[in-house]
Amino acid sequence: MKKVLEVKNLKTHFFTQKGVVPAVDGVDIEVGAGEVVGIVGESGCGKSVTAMSILQLLQFPGKTVDGEVLLDGEDLLLKSPEEMYKYRGNKISMIFQEPMTSLNPVYTVGKQVAEILRVHTNISKVEARKKVIQMFEKVGIPEPIKRYDAYPHQLSGGLRQRVMIAMAIICDPVLMIADEPTTALDVTIEAQILYLMKQLQKDSGTSIVMITHNLGVVAEVCDRVYVMYAGKVMETTDVFTLFENPLHPYTSGLLNSIPKLTRVDEDLYTIRGIVPNLLNLPEGCRFCPRCDRAMKICTVMEPPLYDVGDGHQVRCFLYDKELMNG
């Protein structure tokens, strides 16, 4: 499969007064053409910062200090700010978590979608309007002509997120990054939005990076998944293997903490402990203090990503053959 996006050894740090916070600390991600890739993890694990780093939207004190972000083989981190403007919204678009606040309250939603066309293409106002209305229809906004002139506060959360999606796909990007696109929506709307995104993805072949903490969303839409923890990728595999055969203790912990209706008499499983402070990371494996299967080596050495076949990689010494057998 052709690779659309390759993130290699991405390091994004925040330079705060208390010290350097390695929010993203050597992350590798690959996204194939037409693929939907999920990035899952708890709050603060670096999912969103990874996404923002790809588009270079982070501002002081956040800074990408190392790595490569290859879009169709071209390193975005080497682009000048002027060149990056042509990528944002055009080749890579982004959908954010809060449709309530992600749209500017003082402009009509139609105008805000048309703006992105006017920025990236030589299109007249009238043409842009026509195209936006078509796009509104495509993303399932009822009465698109009327809605073009609506202000964000006049639309429901679901409709606003549809507007955001229209904005994200109107320039036919090669990659769309969705940062918790359904977290702020209620479940029925969430299902509709996910279905819509999947449908649009099938039609256009745009690759999607889906950032979420919701494993249900992952199961619903993703082809492949990266599990992140404290700024690092802990496990990556295809979505079926992830649910059938999770290898990393963190991944199994996450899966076990999903409430199940069939287990009424049991307490809900939680991973003990809390996410480590990134300013004061434990030595060795970052998950070690919370891990039920931690070994001596885990406290002193950071495990590399082990390849266990079929593109399944896991950052855990349990899968070091020499160590475990010898």
């Binding site: 588009l55 939207l57 403007y85 042509k86 990528y87 944002r88 919204g89 055009n90 678009s93 982004m94 954010f96 809060e98 606040t101 992600s102 749209l103 500017n104 309250p105 003082v106 703006e115 992105i116 920025v119 990236h120 955001m164 904005m167």
Partner: peptide
């Protein structure tokens, strides 16, 4: 958040300020 959206659309910094931030 809508300023972040504006930046993610590929607007230049002055356009973000004049078109999206100033009126608000």
């Amino acid at each position: 958040d809508y300023i972040r959206t504006a930046r993610s659309k590929g607007l230049k910094p002055w356009a973000v300020v004049y078109k999206h931030a100033l009126k608000n």
